[in-house]
Design a binder for these strands. Sequence first.
RNA 1: GGAGGGGUGCCUGAGUGGUUGAAAGGGCCGGUCUCGAAAACCGGUGUACCGCAUCGCGGUACCGAGGGUUCGAAUCCCUCCUCCUCCGCCA
Length: 430
Amino acid sequence: MLDLKYVVANAESVRQNCKNRNVPQDVIDDLDRALALDLERKTLVKQVEEMRRRQNEVAQATGKERDAERRAALVEEGKSLKTAAAHEEEKLRLLDGEIAQRLKRIPNLTHPDAPIGQTEGDSKELRKVGTPRSFDFPVRDHVEIGKALDLIDFETGGKVSGAGFYFLKNDAVLLDLALQQFAVRKLIERGFTPVITPDLARNSILEGIGFTPRGAETQVYSIEEADLSLVGTAEITLGGMLADTVIDEAQLPIRFVGVSHCFRTEAGAAGRASRGLYRVHQFTKVEMFAFTTPESSGAMHSTMLEIEEDLFQALGIPYRVLDICSGDLGGPAYRKFDLEAWMPGRGETGEYGEVTSTSDCTDYQSRRLNIRYRPTGQKGTRFVHTLNGTAVALSRAIIAILENYQRGDGLIDTPDVLKPLIGKDVLGAK
RNA sequence: GGAGGGGUGCCUGAGUGGUUGAAAGGGCCGGUCUCGAAAACCGGUGUACCGCAUCGCGGUACCGAGGGUUCGAAUCCCUCCUCCUCCGCCA
């Protein structure tokens, strides 16, 4: 969430930012309401603190008083002070809660260079890299390929777990594992600490990262009778690792590359349902996460984008880079870049489809998760900046590889960089 | 799942109702001593929020989290989280 002080001091620009971000009107109403409540809060805080000061004073005096009669009088005064304070304190507690609840709905500020716009189409294409290959045979999409080569089994996935689930089989398993290895190794080279995270997390952590565990439009599976949810991304668990800690500046940046399963309900996505592996309820993802000083988050964001590009270049997959527009940014993101890989089997003649995404969340997540650092040689603490980025989302990377590397005989060439990890030059042969 | 024992400041670790935001030691920072260093000695060393006569002073909160008892709680009670030991179960 944003800093209340900042919001109060910059109400107009925060309101404009909400509009640029395409948030519903009731969020803007919440902003205005929070501003009004804050004025109330300020006077109430002073009252409550003054009452508590007086209570402390009386309590201390009582302790020191030896004379029984005077002592009894002080106890009486303490009692009445306590009664009087209780009401005001309750009021303050409610007010604090209400302000926080509204504040949480307000999205992060937006990077000045991010394109302003309301829909996906307003995002700015920064560059295209690689040339989609031309095929001299009818192109198949990954669903057909997966079925023909017995690599992906959606029918059985549906039977066992429901629509949106699938079994990976045979060489698809090797491909999945090889991609994980490939990505993790690359990231280790770049100074990231590898981590395999839990697939479940406390709801408080989900909320800190910016997810809404329960409610109508939640994207999250929650565990019955436990305060836990299945994670939609390792961003949740990686960011949560340092919740409620203070880090020495010398330790920064802290970089993790995490592997987790990701679970998404995809509620409300039915209308734009996508074929095959593109939109599924469960997949595996290798995720980057970094904690930095405010000064260096921009540079880290560029690094993450560069790593993502590096991975897809190494895999030999054409892609384009998008600078995501204000209206399409998630709440915590200050700026976001997406990589869209060329998927020859998508649409009529191939289309770009999102495969990775990297966000600079500035201090939006760290404020809620209470992750601070101690600047070298200074008193006090500041909130760190957090960034996340996909290294490889297995489901979608597999789409890109199967479709781009398909051959006329129906089999799949193994991308060169994966050959040593898979041990086969061709995938899908019986 | 059962039984028991813990969670205190950067670390170790005192503290079972009244000037305790918290002893002591360590670490760290500054100083004295020294050609320099070590040792020794002296001093300092939390965070957030609020106010002000704003390089300092005052107030409020914080001893795992949240409630409760009390004039007053790190200290008593309840719930939860978490760690350790033993038993059971188990990949």
